[in-house]
Design a protein around this nucleic acid. Structure first.
Lengths: 63, 63
DNA sequence: TCTAAATGTCAAGTATAATTTACAAAAAAT
DNA sequence: ATTTTTTGTAAATTATACTTGACATTTAGA
């Protein structure tokens, strides 16, 4: 399912998918796919994303 | 680096690596490697591990 | 409108997570 | 001390995360 918390946290920082992708060194498509929810990133990438957005794992990825 | 919090949470539940592996449907070696810290599991697996151990992502994987 | 930036999505390739099999060493039990 | 369970580790294979490049659609600004 979609990760709406990720999208919300990103837009709250006024970042585009591309900017977040650059910040964590992955492709824009990877960020798009994670927000869309149709795959399963590694924990290292999740942590990098959380740090880029000043959030914790629980805030963005826990369910 | 080693994930000592994972090992501690597992032993606190009196589970072997094999039992945790069975509970989350991966191989024992995968659990061993995560505890040893020399790789980068997927978030889905991390979540399954946390649920099996009654912990949250932040408690086991956040740094 | 018109245009440019941002997002959604696809297909083919590459990197690496996770598996299986196997064996040795450490820890726990008898 | 000896057996049994648990853990550490390695090599070869398979599954899948992630990349690159490309194009269509949506959103935002001029």
């Amino acid at each position: 399912m979609k990760n709406l918390r990720l999208k919300a946290a990103r837009t709250a920082k006024d970042m585009t998918q591309q900017q977040l992708a650059d910040a964590v060194n992955v492709s824009r498509q990877t960020i798009n796919a994670i927000e869309k929810g149709d795959y399963n990133p590694t924990i290292k990438l999740c942590i990098a994303i959380c740090k880029a957005l000043d959030k914790t794992l629980d805030e963005i990825f826990w369910q």
